[in-house]
């Protein structure tokens, strides 16, 4: 392994050979099918560039970074989260693209930083509806502007929301207040604006797009079409129906129930219970001013044309900001942004 890696990493591997071999043996106990070739490949393709980046900024931290990276790499390969047998390309991708960009932060807190990037990318890639690639792009682009690991982690939280983790919206907005204003505005791609104003609009309207601030929120519009047939990578085995419980959209399909969280950045589904769905269905009445007729929804006198598949709606429910519609002709749920008063 050492012959194919940089002289810097090679030196650390030689110096720590005994304990690194022991660690590999112990990881084999935990993961009997630990792929040695995949591990070696990951060391060459992911750990080595990171160690190289750290060596260029804080050479004295190379050994600590290597040991932390080695242990985490063992765990990732053992769990098949990275390497040639990985179930998802994003954990390895995040390591390779994000970590070298923030080498000084990794040098200061290697275990914390590497773990955070791996866990976050895994979290995104295992959440239906999230876009881990977008998170990696954003973190690779802006991570270098962070002055310490705490700022980096907060940026990662905002970026996760921005990458489709709609359920993190509220707590990400709260965390965002601790970031420098330019960094925060860059994270949500808002043009020149004051963060406090953008934040207030984001809080009041989940469909407000800070990247297109001139788009009016006074007009009802089709905002998103979320969910899909299980055979096409979605969650539903049959066309779903929706209900609203405690202000949240609950979706039922094929004897399974899901909580839908959605905003302008994306939508995610979370396991719910039949009780929640039944409770929601019992109380789901469309608010006054919303009428459905054919493939048109009329919201407070304004018509919204619906896609053809929604000309026969099987369920409709609305929160303060969102109208959710389902149809027997599609496995998707149509979300209509309602005007915010």
């Amino acid at each position: 392994m050492s012959a194919a890696v940089s002289p810097t990493l090679s030196a650390v591997l030689r110096a720590e050979r005994h304990q690194l071999n022991e660690r590999f043996a112990m990881a084999r106990v935990r993961h009997p099918d630990l792929d040695a070739e995949a591990f070696a490949g990951f060391i060459r393709g992911a750990v080595d560039p990171l160690v190289g980046a750290v060596a260029r900024t804080r050479f004295e931290r190379v050994t600590d970074v290597t040991l932390a990276a080695y242990d985490i790499a063992l765990e990732l390969i053992g769990q098949k989260l990275a390497g040639r047998s990985a179930r998802t390309p994003h954990v390895g991708g995040a390591w390779r693209r994000v970590l070298p960009e923030v080498a000084p932060l990794v040098a200061a807190a290697p275990e914390r930083m590497i773990t955070a990037v791996c866990n976050a990318s895994h979290h995104l890639s295992s959440t239906t509806g999230a876009r881990p690639g977008a998170w990696i792009d954003l973190m690779a682009r802006l991570g270098g502007q962070c002055t310490d690991s705490s700022m980096f982690l907060t940026l990662g939280q905002v970026a996760a929301w921005r990458a489709g983790m709609a359920h993190f919206r509220e707590s990400a907005l709260t965390a965002a207040d601790t970031l420098p204003e330019p960094l925060m505005l860059a994270a949500i791609e808002a043009p020149k604006a004051r963060w406090s104003e953008v934040r207030d609009r984001l809080r009041s309207d989940p469909w407000y797009d800070p990247a297109a601030p001139n788009e009016t929120s006074a007009t009802p519009r089709v905002a998103a079409r979320v969910g899909a047939f299980r055979g096409f990578g979605g969650l539903f085995t049959e066309p779903p129906t929706a209900a609203i419980a405690d202000g949240q959209v609950i979706v039922g399909a094929g004897g399974e129930w899901w909580l839908l969280t959605a905003d302008v950045f994306g939508a995610t589904f979370h396991r719910a219970t039949r009780e929640e769905f039944d409770r929601g269905r019992g109380g789901s009445v469309l608010p006054e001013g919303i009428v459905l007729h054919g493939a048109t929804a009329t919201v407070r006198g304004r018509n919204v044309s619906l896609p053809e598949a929604f000309d026969e709606v099987t369920s409709a429910c609305a929160s303060r900001t969102t109208l959710a519609l389902t149809s027997a002709r599609t496995h998707a749920i149509l979300l209509v942004a309602l005007p915010v008063a």
Partner: peptide
């Protein structure tokens, strides 16, 4: 939902 959960995971 707590955004801090983002960093909890397999590692």
């Amino acid at each position: 939902f707590d955004v801090a959960d983002l960093y909890r995971g397999p590692v």
